[in-house]
């Protein structure tokens, strides 16, 4: 086996995985804290990319600099969705009804994106991102490496917020035992809204990074939701570290199987890994960050 090629493949997987991690962390948080599977996750990601596109076109804002704005906009949309529709569905029906709500919301949001931006393929790239670096025979794609770095920074910020800030602790407490957290004065409804908002914000931020690396269209949402599913199951539910681990695994499985078995095989391997992981460790490598494993 060629050592450089193996190393190159591992590096490619790492870079790809970092992006998967960031794109999945919001999904993971909502799943971990609210128990809701958010089928609108992929649309949140794309909405982030499109808002970045609009900011770039209207104000000339660089995509990376647009991340805070996009985060805020998506946080408001996400929080509003939870406050109005998701909470109503969970209260009146069951946790499972939230699936229908988020599915319906994804249909609506996607059509809104099409209405605003058309069905065309778009791209957030600027040419300076296409630089190439050579490190000891390994070729590193500048745009993707930038994406990986940005992902790591954002994930670290989330991890710090969840552990060091009061709100973060309240989120974790609610996830572990919403009833007990309520007794301690935590308003769980507020925490749910906040979690949904923060998660949507992270999805939007990852949309910017995805948009800088790959072209996107309004119909990619299912792809990203599915990737988030896989990432969360591989890594673990509800924590940035779990998302990071899951994303990296997904990236490595994808590039290794593509390089050494055949470029058309990664999807088969990804889903087999997912099934295997579910059977062996249903809560992912790290388990559920909050609740005891079922």
């Amino acid at each position: 086996m060629n050592g450089t090629l193996l190393f190159q493949t591992l590096v490619d997987g790492l870079i790809l995985g970092g992006i998967f991690s960031l794109s999945a962390v919001g999904f993971s948080l909502i799943f971990g804290v609210l128990g809701v599977v958010n089928l609108a996750h992929g649309v949140f990601i794309l909405a982030g990319a499109y808002i970045g596109l609009w900011l770039k076109g209207a104000l000339g804002l660089d995509p990376l600099a647009a991340i805070p704005v996009v985060f805020l906009v998506l946080a408001v949309i996400g929080g509003a969705l939870q406050r109005t529709l998701v909470s109503a569905a969970v209260q009146r029906g069951s946790l499972m009804t939230s699936l229908l709500i988020t599915f319906g919301a994804s249909l609506i949001l996607r059509d809104l994106l099409i209405l605003a931006f058309g069905p065309d393929i778009q791209s957030l790239s600027s040419t300076w991102l296409l630089r190439t670096y050579h490190v000891g025979g390994v070729v590193i794609d500048g745009a993707r490496a930038t994406g990986l770095l940005a992902s790591l920074v954002l994930l670290a910020m989330l991890a710090i917020a969840l552990h060091a800030m009061k709100v973060g602790r309240a989120i974790r407490a609610t996830a572990q035992q919403s009833f007990a957290a309520g007794l301690c004065g935590v308003d769980s409804n507020r925490i749910y809204t906040l979690t949904f908002g923060v998660s949507a914000g992270f999805a939007g931020a990852s949309g910017i990074i995805i948009g800088m690396i790959n072209p996107f269209s309004p119909f990619d949402d299912a792809y990203w939701t599915l990737n988030a599913f896989v990432t969360v199951v591989l890594g673990g539910v509800g924590s940035p570290v779990g998302a990071l681990l899951g994303g990296l695994m997904l990236g490595e499985i994808s590039t290794l199987s593509s390089q050494y078995i055949g470029p058309r095989f990664p999807n088969v391997f990804i889903f087999c890994a997912l099934l295997l992981m579910l059977i062996v460790r249903p809560n992912g490598l790290l388990g559920n960050a909050y609740k005891a494993s079922v």
Partner: peptide, 21 residues
Amino acid sequence: LDLHMMLTGAVLIAMVILAPK
């Protein structure tokens, strides 16, 4: 040709909220 997905989504949400069972 357009927007039927959005209307489907809206009906779906309305049904779930109005008739959760």
